[in-house]
Write a protein that binds this DNA or RNA. Structure first.
Lengths: 183, 183
DNA sequence: CCCTTGCGAGACACTGATGTCTCATTCGGG
DNA sequence: CCCGAATGAGACATCAGTGTCTCGCAAGGG
């Protein structure tokens, strides 16, 4: 009988990341609850978005922790990160697109911290000679977010099989589309 | 005195791709014109979005033609395509995010055609042994769109220099982040 | 078994965006 | 220099979305 708050948020993220103009009524319907109930749990649209941000940042941070980026090679760390982040891919893609419209340049402090951790990981990979140095850590970070979001959409729309999600993202990000001749 | 219709559309695409909930008034202000004038040129919000789609598809198609994908290696074709598409990157990223919310699964027929051309190019690259076959053409196509959109945002927000736009996208998409040891 | 709690559906007023209008102004061509 | 076309600013009605409320109902615990 009780609404699963987290499930509602995940559904809302999946919907809002594809249709930012979605109505509160649409969000409620997508989550399978009534609009009044949605309002009981989230005071308004702003509160809903804020809750999405909080949950998304929390899950992303948890994924970063669980990935143990410091251990092993940078590549292994990245693979673990993508694996850990997969369940929250919808939330992350919502966060990324939402963060674009930083109203008045007030970047979320939590987001900045996560951004720095990911960026630092790519920098470590460069310093250890694993990653190319002609692609900036900032760009690799953005590209990772973009590919995760794209992957989440592609899976949702059935253009990519869910089981290939991790592989497609990591392989493209690490190895690229070019076929290595010596292989 | 006369409004530059195309410039208005480009400005609108840049704004709407970052903030889909932007008001007609915001769009007008961003384009430096009055709201009434905006309404004179585009009957309403739907008409504006439709015009953006038409222009975006037209420019994308022109980029595909200009890139001469059939000539030379698949990699060269891809590089030309990204170069040709750069001026319309904002429009393309709007189209991609907009196309996610295919209302009632009515995918735009023009978009499907473009999609098929890009996908076919990746397939050709695979058949010629240039591209990896473990990454599907559909995914490579999606990834290209995603990276172009991500790149456009990153440039807009100053996280990546505009002059690096093409390089960052093509190098990551083709070669990936991993440093090749034999190099 | 009852009773409390939480939910869905619907009604309602309110706010903000939209679309249309008028009017003064300005630009640019003739 | 003058005139027409196009624009900007603003007023206005309309409407969709929002936020709040009530009521009936179902679930689940005591």
């Amino acid at each position: 009988m009780t609404v699963d708050r987290e499930q509602v948020l995940r559904t809302a993220a999946a919907l809002l990341s594809r249709k930012a103009t979605a109505t509160m009524d649409e969000v409620a319907k997508a989550a399978g609850i009534g609009r009044a109930t949605l309002h009981r749990h989230f005071a308004g649209r702003d509160a809903l978005v804020k809750a999405l941000e909080v949950l998304g940042i929390r899950e992303f941070e948890a994924a970063l922790d669980a990935a143990r980026l410091d251990e092993g090679s940078a590549e292994e760390g990245l693979r673990r990160l993508v694996a850990e982040i997969e369940p929250a891919a919808g939330l992350l893609s919502f966060l990324v697109t939402e963060n674009q419209l930083f109203e008045g340049a007030h970047v979320n402090e939590g987001w900045g911290r996560l951004d720095a951790r990911v960026s630092a990981h790519f920098r470590r990979g460069q310093q250890q000679g694993e990653f190319r140095i002609d692609l900036t850590p900032a760009w690799l970070t953005e590209a990772l977010y973009g590919l995760i979001g794209t992957g989440a959409w592609a899976v949702q729309d059935g253009r990519v099989a869910a089981k290939d999600f991790q592989y497609m993202i990591v392989e493209l990000l690490l190895g690229g589309a070019r076929r290595n001749v010596e292989q």
